[in-house]
Design a protein around this nucleic acid. Structure first.
Length: 435
DNA sequence: AAATGTAAGTTGTGGGCGCT
DNA sequence: AGCGCCCACAACTTACATTT
C-alpha cells in the first residue's frame, strides 16, 4: 500500500481538473475529523494517495512552489517517502495533506510536466531534484542492498534498519530513508517486489548478492558448522592427550569416531581470535546454549527430520549432557560384563584400557603373555575408542556407595540395567584371588 | 600346618569444582 | 541447589608369601 502510483485507477485523464479538485476537497473534509480508529486511519492514507494521483494533474506552477517550500525548509529535495505536506503557510494550500514525494517522484508526473521542457529540468536541477527517484522503487531497494553489502559484507539487514542520510558516498542519495530492513523482511515473508514476470530475474539478482532467503536455515547451518568444528577440535585434543598412536583410521576407529557423543558444555561460547582455529563468522556463538535450546525447545529441528538426522550423525545427544555420563557407564559396564561372563565385578581402580600400540622398552614381558596389539585384523580391541581411559571402577564405586546416577525417576530402571549386567552390589572386601 | 607379615583391594568419609 | 565427576586419605578386609 506504500506506493500510490502503482495502484492504477480508472480515473480518466479527460475530466482531470474538476474531479481532482473535488476528490481533494472530500479528502480534506475527511481528514478534518477527530481521532480516528485504526481502520479509519488506513482509509485516510488511501485518501491521501488518491489526492496524490489527483495532484499529478495540478499545474506545474503550484508543484514547483511546493517543492521550493520544501527545499527552503529542509535544504534539499530528498523528500521522505510518504511525506505529507503539512497545513502550514509555506506550502501552497492546494498541496496541504498531499503526499508530495509520491506525487512528484513519479514517472508519469515527469512525463506530464517536465520531460519536454528544458527550463523545468534546469529549474528542478537547481533545487537538487533527485532524478534517480523516478526509477521504480525496486531499483532503489536493490541499489541500497548493494550499498549495504559493500559496507557490511553481507545483506542480513536488521529489520529495523533504515538507510541513513549522509553525504559520504556510502548511500546514494536516492536511497536515503528507505526502510531497507523492512523491505528485506517483506521480500522473504510476503515476496514483495518478487511477484509477476520479473520475479525470476530479481531473485537471481538477490542471489548474486548472497541474499538469505531463510534466516532460520542460515542460523541452523551456522550452529551445525560450529558443532562440526567442536567435534573436530575435541578429537584433536583427545589425540594429543592420549599421547599415543599415529595409527590410521581403522574401521573400528572410524566407527567409534562417528558415534562418539558430542558433549558441549552448556556455557560454551565459540572463542574469538584468530589463533583458536575457529572460522571468524562463528566467533561468539553461544553454542552450549544453542544445544540446550535444540534439546528442550526443538530449536531448528521442530518438524525437521533431516536436520535431526544430521545432528545425530555428528553425535548430538538429545538426552543432554546430564545423562551422558550414565550412558558411558552403562556402555563400559556392558562391555566389561560381556568380557567377564555376564558378571560385573569391577575393581575400583579399573580404567578402560587403550590398546597397547608399541611395546615400551622397560615393559616386563611376563611369561609369553598374549600380545594384545590390534595390529591384526582379527582380535579387534573390545573397547571402543571413546571409552579409553574411562574410570569405570571409580564410577561403579560411586554407584554402590553414593547412589550416583540413581536419583530421580530413572533410578529403578538403571538399577535394573545394572542387575541385567550381573552387577555385584556388595563385592567382597580385600584382595582378590589372582587369576 | 599354623602363624605371621605384607600387599592389594576394599569401604567410608569428605571435600572441591564445575555443570545443569 | 543439587548433582556429576574426581581426588585423597584413613581404616579395614582379605589373599598371598614367608616364616616358624
Amino acid at each position: 500500500s506504500s506506493s500510490s502510483s502503482s495502484s492504477s485507477s480508472s480515473a480518466g485523464g479527460s475530466s482531470s481538473g474538476g474531479d481532482g479538485a473535488a476528490s481533494v476537497a472530500s479528502a480534506l473534509k475527511r481528514r478534518t475529523g477527530k481521532k480516528r480508529s485504526r481502520p479509519e486511519r488506513k482509509k485516510a492514507v488511501r485518501a491521501t494517495a488518491g489526492g496524490g494521483r489527483a495532484a499529478m494533474y495540478r499545474p506545474y506552477g503550484s508543484a514547483i512552489e511546493a517543492l521550493r517550500a520544501y527545499h527552503s525548509v529542509h535544504g534539499d529535495l530528498v523528500i521522505p517517502r510518504r511525506f505529507v505536506v503539512p497545513g502550514s503557510e509555506e506550502y501552497p494550500e492546494e498541496w496541504h495533506g498531499i503526499d508530495l514525494s509520491s506525487s512528484v517522484y513519479d514517472m508519469r508526473w515527469w512525463q506530464l510536466h517536465v520531460r519536454s521542457n528544458a527550463d523545468r529540468v534546469a529549474e528542478l536541477n537547481s533545487l537538487g531534484f533527485v532524478w534517480e527517484r523516478l526509477q521504480p522503487e525496486w531499483n532503489l531497494v536493490l541499489e541500497a542492498l548493494v550499498a549495504y553489502s559493500m559496507k557490511c559484507g553481507h545483506v542480513l539487514v536488521p529489520s529495523s534498519f533504515v538507510v541513513p542520510r549522509g553525504d559520504d558516498e556510502t548511500w546514494p542519495r536516492a536511497t536515503w530513508g528507505i526502510r531497507l530492513g523492512s523491505c528485506v523482511h517483506r521480500m522473504r515473508i510476503r515476496h514483495d517486489f518478487l511477484r509477476g514476470p520479473t520475479a525470476a530475474s530479481r531473485k537471481a539478482q538477490l542471489d548474486g548478492l548472497g541474499f538469505v532467503w531463510d534466516v532460520n536455515e542460515r542460523a541452523f547451518l551456522r550452529t551445525y558448522r560450529a558443532l562440526k568444528h567442536f567435534r573436530r577440535m575435541e578429537r584433536r585434543g583427545a589425540a594429543a592427550a592420549s599421547s599415543s598412536s599415529s595409527r590410521g583410521g581403522s574401521d573400528g576407529a572410524a566407527a567409534a569416531r562417528r558415534y562418539k557423543a558430542l558433549r558441549v558444555p552448556s556455557t560454551f561460547v565459540v572463542p574469538e581470535g584468530e589463533e583458536r582455529g575457529w572460522p571468524e563468522d562463528l566467533w561468539g556463538l553461544p553454542l552450549g546454549a544453542k544445544c540446550s535450546a535444540i534439546r528442550h525447545k526443538g530449536l531448528y529441528v521442530k518438524n525437521q527430520p533431516d536436520r535431526q538426522r544430521a545432528l545425530e550423525e555428528l553425535g548430538f545427544q538429545w538426552s543432554g549432557n546430564a545423562t551422558l555420563g550414565w550412558l558411558q557407564v552403562v556402555h563400559a559396564a556392558a562391555v566389561f560384563s560381556r568380557l567377564h561372563g555376564r558378571t560385573l565385578d569391577v575393581p575400583i581402580n579399573f580404567v578402560v584400557p587403550a590398546p597397547p600400540t608399541h611395546r615400551a622398552p622397560d615393559e616386563q614381558e611376563s611369561d609369553g603373555g598374549v600380545d594384545h596389539r590390534v595390529t591384526g585384523t582379527e582380535d579387534a580391541w573390545p573397547w571402543p575408542e571413546q571409552l579409553w581411559g574411562f574410570p569405570l571402577g571409580q564410577r561403579l564405586k560411586d554407584v554402590r556407595l553414593k547412589g550416583a546416577y540413581l536419583t530421580g525417576d530413572a533410578a529403578s530402571s538403571r538399577r535394573a540395567q545394572l542387575d541385567a549386567l550381573g552387577f555385584n552390589w556388595t563385592p567382597k572386601r580385600g584382595r582378590r584371588r589372582r587369576p
